[in-house]
């Protein structure tokens, strides 16, 4: 397993989170941590949500491939692989 940290911006629509989580389970992606919140922290209803997730990938599966698969989901506006940034933040 390789660990990757992804950050997604998604439309706050019913079923959007479910679709992402189902993609993880049908493609054999292990979810280590997941946090969801409004993309614009202040103010009432937010049209966009931000999802930060740390996933484990099986050998031979790449984060780039997962990013593209997530990008196909209609309600997903953007996906960024932050694995590298995080490694820098941790000084690794």
């Amino acid at each position: 397993m390789t660990r990757h940290s992804l950050s997604l911006l998604l439309r706050n629509e019913p079923g959007a989170l479910a679709r992402i989580v189902v993609l993880f389970s049908s493609r054999g992606v292990d979810v280590e941590s997941l946090s969801l919140g409004p993309a614009e922290p202040h103010g009432g209803h937010s049209a966009l949500s931000r999802l930060d997730v740390v996933v484990g990938l099986q050998p031979g599966r790449t984060a780039a491939q997962l990013v593209k698969q997530l990008g196909r989901i209609v309600d997903v506006k953007s996906v960024v692989d932050r694995t590298h940034d995080e490694a820098l933040e941790l000084g690794a």
């Binding site: 079923g15 989901i73 309600d75």
Partner: peptide
């Protein structure tokens, strides 16, 4: 049906 078909639809609406 939306949940049942999540992995086999491009998109869905209720």
């Amino acid at each position: 049906i939306r949940s049942i078909t999540l992995p086999i639809t491009k998109h869905s609406y209720q």
